[in-house]
Design a protein around this nucleic acid. Structure first.
Lengths: 394, 394
DNA sequence: CTGAAAGCGCTTACAG
DNA sequence: CTGAAAGCGCTTACAG
């Protein structure tokens, strides 16, 4: 793709190079019809576009548009931003010329003068293998971006090893004015990020938080309903002893599940129940499984807080000679393709994570615009019965 | 966190508010020792930091530093950027003052005047469930960011439904000067993105490309060695008929694996071999498995192009009453936690994806700096033997 | 080694 | 509805 030159445009339009150059760089002293002809030729050849995109040559700016249409930069800016205060004819003329010249806003110039970066940030503090094996995050991201891309807002993304590193990233991004707001995940019990965000005053949406305040909005769903469906499902099958292989209790949603699990088991007539905390890993999932299966009130059903532990537990149970689901029922919290691909397929609690991501992004944009924090409750998870749950052995 | 005011600083430093204000806003007419005292107090209280981070109040700029130390903005800029052309003493004084005032660069201002956004872009055109189930991408991202974060370079991330949408994003980001360069994945046979990037002139690193040129660098690894290890492993176990459940052949690395597979099977004495193309999905993985197991020269070993298909194939085979690995050996290409968690665990081809990501990012930064495209070859995948491979039934 | 000034490309009061 | 100008916070020649 050779670069399109003024000479090319001149030839295409059938005018002199001097005339073409005049139109392309300013537009004074050339008749309207000739101006139009040159601009059409430029558009056809992709002259402006190439210029603006290639990095070589001069970038098309609002000054170029202004002189092409014979109006001020201020008017051009108004028209381009859809603001009131400019006549319909001039607006149309400006828009058309901008299109023809291939003008595109310079994000840094806008950010500098408007104090808005049109970017939001997402930082994930989990180890890479957890991130890579949990479908949650990619779905969340897909939901977020479905909303952002409509508004030409961009997402900065980073993974970090710890929550401290996460906060350091927020400080950097915010103080360098890289972002207008933040999306947070994995709320902890007494999460240090919350006061940190409030202190810095960063507009944020915290997934899992129950109530927005200050500059932080909340988007969440209840854990209890999914737990209740699970316990009911197992009780109705006849189970009276249930073990739970839990994620880290420092996560607020895990702690909440744990409380709901204990309360509901007790209320719904489960005679024995027990939770074992793990770090979410395959190894600890297998270990907790071994431990629970060796208990005096050996559980006939096991519930896991993520899919990789459920799979590891399945493997562990099968290795000890158990048949699933005849000898032991298994439920995974957070459905994934792997729950379907395993043998037997795993009964799991499923949520619409993509919708959750969309809501989180929508809330963030609202917050950035309005400055007022909000609280949104999303639908809870629901159980999807598959082949890994059945009545307990008699 | 209440905002730190000039009055607070004055109290802390034991000077009048007028004096504190003078120092904090300019520094003229105040003795060096008093100036120092006030700046120390400000630093202790986090005055500058709060100012620069909170968004309220005036941001600390290089002009503030300049008047505080009594030098020009240009000198301050030089010092802050580590450029030559300023005396050691003044450099030190500027750096110290900047630190005390909590100055942070404004990314947009820098981007506008330096024509560098200090951001790179990554767009993934795969459906969300594939992305969420393949550990590849998160590992790649972790590797990329390990390099970027050292240089305070930020990553824009987006998922899109198609390769056309992907190119549209590149056009947007580049023409708005959002990014300095791009990282590309999933090279296609005759990939349209390559000429597109070259046309736009975007500095890019294309993973999988065999040779850099123009503004595009290449980072790749050979597929053949991993294929060879796999075929050798199976042959040495005694297998003479191998089936392959392949990913989409439009991907260059899949096409290459396919060619290597046919060539190596033939060279290494495998009597029957066959590849079936799929879309990477669980469903088609299961379907291809059924098909291959029904062939006249029924394969005794099956090789899969991703982990989810391998798992689906394992399930399918077990459902038809086969024991793995006694009746059928299975190998997954691209190892993951799920290959370890399955029962039996899956023999798989593993690569150091994180290192690959680091190299890709390093190459991109080099390219952005130098303008010269490069080509880097990374180590190929190696087979990791687990429980899913054994001699064929006799 | 240092200063004064122009410029990056926008937005936004301020006048008319 | 429109124009002229200042300003956002830096970098970068250009002089000395």
């Amino acid at each position: 793709m050779a670069r399109v030159t003024v000479a090319d445009v001149a030839d295409e339009a059938g005018v002199s190079r001097v005339t073409a150059s005049k139109v392309l760089r300013g537009g004074e002293g050339v008749s309207p019809s000739t101006t139009q002809r040159v601009l059409d030729a430029a558009a056809a050849l992709g002259y402006g576009r190439e210029q603006s995109a290639s990095g070589e040559g001069k970038r098309v700016t609002i000054a170029d548009i202004a002189s092409a249409v014979g109006l001020s930069k201020g008017s051009v800016s108004f028209a381009l931003n859809g603001q009131a205060g400019i006549s319909p004819e001039n607006r149309e003329k400006i828009l058309e010329t901008a299109r023809q010249l291939g003008w595109r806003p310079h994000s840094a110039a806008r950010a500098l003068s408007s104090s808005q970066s049109k970017a939001i940030g997402l930082v994930l503090a989990r180890d890479v293998d957890t991130l890579g094996s949990e479908p949650y995050f990619m779905r969340l991201i897909a939901g977020i971006e479905a909303v952002l891309s409509k508004e030409s807002i961009v997402m900065l993304f980073q993974t970090v090893p710890s929550i401290e590193a996460e906060m350091a990233v927020y400080d950097d991004w915010w103080s360098e004015r890289r972002i207008d707001g933040l999306l947070l995940n994995d709320l902890r019990v007494d999460d240090p990020r919350l006061p940190y965000l409030q202190g810095l005053g960063i507009p944020s949406v915290f997934a899992g938080l129950r109530e927005g305040s200050g500059t932080v909005s909340a988007v969440f769903h209840e854990e209890a309903p999914g737990v209740e469906e699970t316990v009911l499902h197992l009780r109705d099958l006849g189970h009276r002893s249930i073990g739970r292989v839990a994620g880290p209790a420092e996560f607020a949603h895990i702690a909440e599940r744990g409380q709901a699990f204990a309360r509901l088991c007790s209320e719904l007539g489960i005679e024995h129940y027990e939770s074992i905390e793990t770090d979410y890993s395959m190894e600890q999932g297998a270990e907790a499984t071994r431990y629970l299966l060796a208990r005096p009130e050996r559980p006939t059903a096991l519930v896991y807080d993520n899919d990789i532990m459920a799979l590891a537990g399945l493997r562990e149970a099968q290795a000890t000679g158990l048949s699933i689901p005849q000898d032991l029922s298994i439920v995974a919290w957070d459905d994934s393709l792997f729950c379907q691909a395993s043998s037997p397929s795993l009964t799991a609690v499923a949520r619409d994570i993509r919708a959750f991501g969309e809501q989180a992004a929508t809330s963030l944009l609202d917050l950035i615009r309005s400055g007022a924090p909000d609280t949104v409750r999303e639908p809870p998870g629901r159980i999807v019965a598959r082949d890994s749950t059945a009545p307990p052995p008699s």
